[in-house]
Each structure stands twice: as C-alpha cells, then as structure tokens.
Design a protein around this nucleic acid. Structure first.
Lengths: 161, 161
DNA sequence: ATAGATGCAAATATTTTGCCGCCAG
DNA sequence: CTGGCGGCAAAATATTTGCATCTAT
C-alpha cells in the first residue's frame, strides 16, 4: 500500500462513506459480514451508480473516492454480493464486448432493453413479465430465485436515421 | 497447417461434412459467404450439438472431425454467425463460470430455465413470452432483433433433497 | 484471379489465486 | 485477539489481432 495514514481524516472533498449506510451495507451488516473501509466504498459506488457498470468502471469510481482500492478487492466484493444475491450480473447482450455489468438487485425484476446501434439501455417493468415467471415456475416445477431478460433491437431514434 | 492433404478422402470414420448441408450452411451460402472446409465442420458441430456449448467445447468436437481446426477459426466463425444473427449467445446466468454458450438460433425464441443446484437446463417456450416481447416493442418503441431470457432456481428434484 | 479465410504467435482482456501482513468486531 | 480481509504479484482463462499464406468461388 502506498504511504498514507490508514484512516484519512474526512475532508470537504472526500465523500463520507460511513453515513448514511446504504441498502447494501445494511444487508451485509445484518448478516454479520465484516464491513471494511474498502467494501463501504465499493458498495457506495454500486448503489449510487448512474447506470450499469463493469468491474473496471466500478474500480475507477471507487479509486476516485479512495485511491488505494485495488482491482482484486473490487472483484472479491462483487463476488461477495453475487453470492448473497444482492446484485445482478448482466452482459447486456454483449453489445459492448464480453464485459459483465452489475447493478444493485431491485425488489422487482426489470427487463433491460438495449439499442444495438446507439447502445442506450432502458429498463422496463411489466406485470406480464411477472405472469410469465409464474407460468415458468408452475410449468417447469422450479422455484425461481433469479431471472434475467435482455432485449435488443433498434430504438426509435436510430431507426429514423 | 500440419502436413496432410488439403482434402482428405472420406472414410468410414470421418463424418462427411459436405452433405447434407445443414441449416446454418444453407443460410451462409445463400448470403454469398464463403464456405470453407473448416467452417462446414464448425457449423455442423454447432447444429448437431446435444446442448449448449462454449467455444472450447465447440473446438474439441470440431477437432474430432478435423484435427487441423484451430481455436481462432472457431472464434471467428462464432463471430460470423453472431453477426448474421444465426446463433444465440447465452451465459446461463453464469452458473458455470463466465463462459459463453452458443446455440443455433431457433425460429421461435425460448427461455432457458436452469437449476442453480444441479445445473440442468431446460428450454421453455411460451405465448406469454411472445406477448411480452410485443409489449416491450410497443412501449419502448423498439424493433426487437434479439431477445434472451434466463431463469434460475431450484428444480423439483433438487428441492426434494 | 482475387477477396476473403486460415494458421500461428503474440497481444489483450478479464478474472482468479497464493501468500502474508493487517484490521474489524 | 483472531479469523476474515486487502494488497501484491503472478497465474489462469478467455478472446482478439497482425501478418503471411492459402483457397473458395
């Protein structure tokens, strides 16, 4: 680790990662999982993300808050969150290479609708989707714990061009 | 390439990759795409697959038919088929690591239903799914060209244990 | 004949692991 | 205290690319 105090004093520039505890932090805490300085930062980044991020983007943002966070820690934290079902892993139809994208798991599943030309991704919720999942559960005799739907095509704007 | 005739004589052991032309071969042919010996083999492997395969498995099977086929050719052929929308790329919820799986694109989309414990994958078709896609297309103003749904959970057999 | 394919090797990209010192609880 | 965690470096995977040669059409 580079020479710097183990715990920096909070400055005006630095975002306070101790308060308020986000949802992910709360979930992990209540499960008795150790909350390190680095984890708090990664959790915060994932929760406050404007959109879906891959591991590299999470790392970049985390390092802006605390430069000492390493890529390995990001991967290990992602893995931790996945194992606890707190984040979803997407690949957005591989429209942008083979990267994986992450987002905080929302209470209600949503569909990712991506434009294959401009790459814009929209989230879409539908009662029909819930119904479909119930049908799958019934017909396949499965107790669904995770569902993921990604749809690609040309959005209206790109079609007009 | 290792020393061997450019075109081996067909033997009892070797599968004839020239006849009958599979669907993929036909599709590519009708689009004026060059059908090389290697491509024929890879296409045949993908079409005759018992299940979803990743690039490594496709390579292994292809090399059993023609040992000279290289990994690079497999990747390039997969890419070709993807670009032409002739195969689908799945990751089966990353249940088995971050590999990507491929299957010949079927006329009607199907959902992949995977058990998170035993790993068994079942394919499921549903009119409800078609309806959902129509809803998405309408509400999001998108012209859908590709759709992928993967669902995971505990199958009946695993739940009983 | 010739645009486009393949093979090879090397470059990239991405993710995981071993080991050791350190810290949250 | 102490078991889990983070850092570092290296390994393991996975995929792509440059270039020379070959081939399907």
């Amino acid at each position: 680790m580079s020479p710097k105090p183990a715990h920096r004093v909070s400055t005006g520039e630095r975002i306070n990662v101790h308060e308020p505890a986000g949802r992910l932090q709360g979930e992990l805490g209540s499960r008795g999982i150790r909350l390190t300085r680095q984890r708090r930062v990664v959790l915060q980044v994932i929760e406050s993300a404007p959109s879906h991020m891959d591991a590299g983007e999470i790392l970049d943002r985390a390092q802006k808050i605390d430069p000492d966070i390493t890529r390995v820690t990001v991967y290990r934290t992602i893995d931790l969150l996945k194992r606890h079902g707190l984040i979803d892993e997407l690949d957005l139809l591989h429209l942008r290479g083979h990267r994986h994208f992450y987002e905080s798991h929302s209470p209600r599943d949503h569909i990712h609708v991506a434009c294959i030309r401009c790459g814009k991704v929209r989230e879409f919720e539908s009662e029909l989707y819930e119904e479909l999942k119930r049908q799958i559960a019934r017909d396949c005799g499965i107790e669904i714990t995770v569902a993921r739907t990604e749809v690609g095509g040309l959005c209206a704007a790109c079609r007009g061009k």
